[in-house]
Amino acid sequence: MSLTLQDVADAAGVSVSVASRSLNGRAREYRISEATEKTVKKAAAKLGFRPSQVARSLRLKRSGLVGVVVPDLSNPFFASIAREVTLTAEHEGYSVIVADSRETTANEEQLIEQLLARQIEALVVCPVGRRHEHLSAIDGTGLPVVLVDRGFAKSKLVQVTSDHRCGAQRATELLLDHGHRSIGVLQGLPGTLPNDQRIEGLREGLAKHDIQLDSAMIAGDSFSEHSGYESAKRLLSLHPNITAFFAFSTPNALGALRLISEMGLRVPKDLSIVTFDDIPFADFMSVPLTTIAQDVPALGRTAAELITQQLRSGKRPRIKKHSMKVHLVSRDSIGEAKR
């Protein structure tokens, strides 16, 4: 026979409600003495009783679950965000379910529906970033929703993003300071906030030196290694005078590095490269990458804190948009341009 809460109550000589409150950490709230609480816990341990989380969730109408959806778990950037959200949420007593949308909005919508069916209490999404109507609809039901990284400029959703424009300006100025004027741009997913703001920062950085951005020097359709490889290949075939690449993600940069190696070229002697994002093993690469690093721990923690604050208070954050600073990590992948 399976043990019940009644069995524990009988063994401890208390009522079922006292046994329940003692085991659920609510003894002080209901003025149950420490001695009684210890007696109940001792009886439960002796019997080998384990509370049913399912029964507790049904009773309290709470699951204790937070859903997290990211576009690509193989990308260290998104994996790190998911980890930070998980650590913070678990510290607050919540469990996390992580899902990978594989960079498609259709998958994102389907995964979110599955998470809602699991009775999640809140949702953290690194969205694909082209549409937000489905996310706004969920937010409208009262379920706490926080977006990370790829927000939406005209949305009222709570968003935690990085200062992409400033970072792109800094990367552009760094290349220009080294004499580079023919710069190939390996962009990510067009139409997304990080991609568009990085292009804007690039344009502004060039404009400070009276240089106009040439759209023909931009290629790419995703933040993936494959896109970086194919984009670099296309740009070098059309513009063999390119002296540097600005990659909008580390996977984009890795794709470009693979192509450069296949062509028998060297970084930074033949081609320089700077990228957005950083990876833990960047210092150990044959040519350590110079990067504009986002504060990934701050992105993940801030998102999780905004979620748990809403769950505790039942109130939406007053400030909807949160921007995290970026910083330059100088390494060895940028050299002087050949004049």
Rank of each mutant, 00 (worst) to 15 (best):
A282T: 12
Q159R: 01
V267S: 07
L147Q: 04
S63C: 13
A298K: 15
A117W: 05
P190Y: 10
A106T: 13
K208P: 00
H91T: 01
E305I: 15
S95G: 06
S227T: 15
A232N: 01
A216M: 09
E108Q: 11
N75G: 07
A207D: 12
A79W: 06
Q294N: 12
A12F: 08
E113Q: 13
P317I: 07
M217R: 13
E200F: 08
V70M: 13
L157Y: 08
D72M: 01
D10H: 02
L58D: 09
P71M: 11
I112A: 05
R234K: 13
D149F: 09
S222H: 04
G48K: 11
V70F: 11
A282R: 13
K41A: 11
R165V: 04
G179K: 03
L174N: 00
L306E: 02
R266V: 10
V296Y: 10
G300R: 08
I97C: 05
A99W: 05
G220F: 02
T39P: 00
V18M: 14
S222W: 01
I112C: 04
L73Y: 05
L257S: 07
H132T: 07
R266C: 12
D295E: 08
E200K: 15
S261M: 03
D270S: 04
R339S: 12
T172A: 03
F284C: 12
V66A: 11
